[in-house]
Amino acid sequence: MVALYVALIVNDRRTFEQVPAKLKAAVKADLEAIGLDENGNAIVE
């Protein structure tokens, strides 16, 4: 389910706020692992 929500966020089909509370930490971690923020935008350092 985490990978599904990551894909939905990346493709602008869902927002991070729509992710179930119990999955938010894992979804955020996976997004950050691929260099994206909670909105699916690239993290610029």
Rank of each mutant, 00 (worst) to 15 (best):
E45P: 10
L23P: 01
A29T: 13
R14M: 12
D30M: 11
D12L: 02
A3C: 00
A33R: 15
E17T: 03
A7S: 14
L8C: 05
R13K: 14
K24L: 10
E38H: 03
E17N: 13
G35A: 08
V27R: 03
D12V: 00
K22A: 11
G40K: 10
V6R: 02
E32Q: 15
I34F: 03
L23I: 06
V2I: 15
R13V: 12
A26G: 01
I43H: 07
Q18R: 02
Q18D: 14
A26Y: 05
V6A: 05
A21Y: 04
I34S: 02
V2S: 09
R13N: 08
D12Y: 07
M1N: 12
E45W: 05
E38W: 06
A29W: 00
M1R: 11
D12G: 05
A25T: 11
L4P: 00
E32C: 08
M1V: 09
I9A: 07
A29Q: 14
V2P: 03
A33L: 13
V2T: 15
R14P: 08
E45F: 10
L36M: 15
A3T: 13
D37T: 03
L4C: 00
M1C: 08
T15R: 07
N41C: 10
R13W: 04
V6D: 00
E45G: 09
F16K: 00
I43S: 08
A3R: 13
A21E: 15
A33I: 06
A26F: 01
E32P: 05
L4W: 05
V44W: 00
V10P: 02
A42S: 07
E17L: 09
R14W: 08
V27D: 04
E17I: 01
E32Y: 10
V44G: 01
E17S: 12
A7K: 09
K28T: 06
L23F: 15
N41K: 14
E32S: 15
L8Q: 12
L23C: 02
L23Q: 12
V27Y: 00
N11I: 04
I34K: 10
G40D: 00
D30H: 06
F16P: 07
Y5C: 09
A33W: 01
V10E: 12
D12N: 14
N11P: 07
K24N: 11
R13P: 03
A33C: 07
G40C: 11
V27P: 01
L31V: 10
A33D: 14
P20Y: 06
L4D: 10
N39W: 00
P20S: 07
M1E: 12
E45I: 03
L31C: 03
A29N: 10
I34W: 07
V44Y: 05
T15W: 06
A7C: 06
L23R: 00
I43V: 14
L23W: 09
V6C: 07
E38L: 04
V6Y: 02
V27N: 01
G40H: 06
E17Y: 04
P20R: 08
R14Q: 13
A33N: 13
N41A: 13
I43Q: 11
R13T: 01
A25V: 04
L23E: 12
A29H: 08
A29L: 09
N41E: 15
V6E: 00
A26W: 00
R14F: 12
E32G: 10
Q18W: 03
A3G: 04
N11M: 08
K24R: 15
R14S: 11
L8M: 11
M1S: 14
V44R: 06
